[in-house]
Amino acid sequence: MFAVVSADALRIRLQHDVLKSQPPRPQRLPMSWTWFHRLASPPTFFGLAQRLAPWCAGFGGALLLLAWFGGLVLAPADYQQKDAFRIIYVHVPAAALSLSLYMAMAVCGVVALIWRMKLAECVLVAIAPVGASFTALALVTGMLWGKPMWGAYWVWDARLTSELVLLFLYLGVIGLNSAFEDPRTAARACALLAIVGFVNVPIVHYSVVWWNSLHQGSTILKLGKPNISADMAWPLYAGLLGSYLWSAHAVLRRTQNELLLRERNTRWVREIAAATEPGA
């Protein structure tokens, strides 16, 4: 009963907003967009995330176990790098996520700034710590790979430097978010930084193509056949998919936390809070 009433109320409010903000253009906004607006409503998204998150963690975790077993035990040693090449199974998914999550964050920034969508603000803020953790992992594993193979933990070439800038951008978003009292002002500042910093994403990805670097080129995102034999490649692909699901779980959970915090004075949050036993 309550759900029906609130959904109707929401729809009326949405229609009102549409009428208020735009001159009448009958074909411009078809009714099929209502699903999107409903998805963006905090309680609906919270419920959806609640159902989706365990699947992400479950499948992601299973794929990661498979990938690490495949990478550490089943895959043969490399002809040049011997067993040191196995660091790829941690390094490449972390590096891929560092870029993908930043891209998602920048998209959220655009939606948050233009459409003032509260959910996009929450997702943006939720992505930053997850992205920062995987960027740091990419840097650390890169150093641990660089020392035995290149002969140095760190060099200031274009790829390594731009990846370090990526970490600082994530940390900047986290810092900016905590610097403001009002969460909406904070999220808008974060959105601006996320969009401005997006220029770094193609630089990281194409740094090894555009400029000379010590870092090698991309193995799997290459046109034509990937330059890795099949028995070494499958754990990498499994690890990539598993890592994307794993980070999706973390982002969903952090988005839920952000929604709870922002909507703490609403009825649906109070009901959830009342249902949890204190000190449990």
């Binding site: 690490w68 995987f134 992992l137 594993t141 035995p148 794993w246």
Partner: peptide, 22 residues
Amino acid sequence: MSGYAVYVWGSFAAGLAVYLWN
């Protein structure tokens, strides 16, 4: 790990820490 144990296991330990933290 063909002599690279510190680097390989160090990387996987760092990976495990980040995945668990998330």
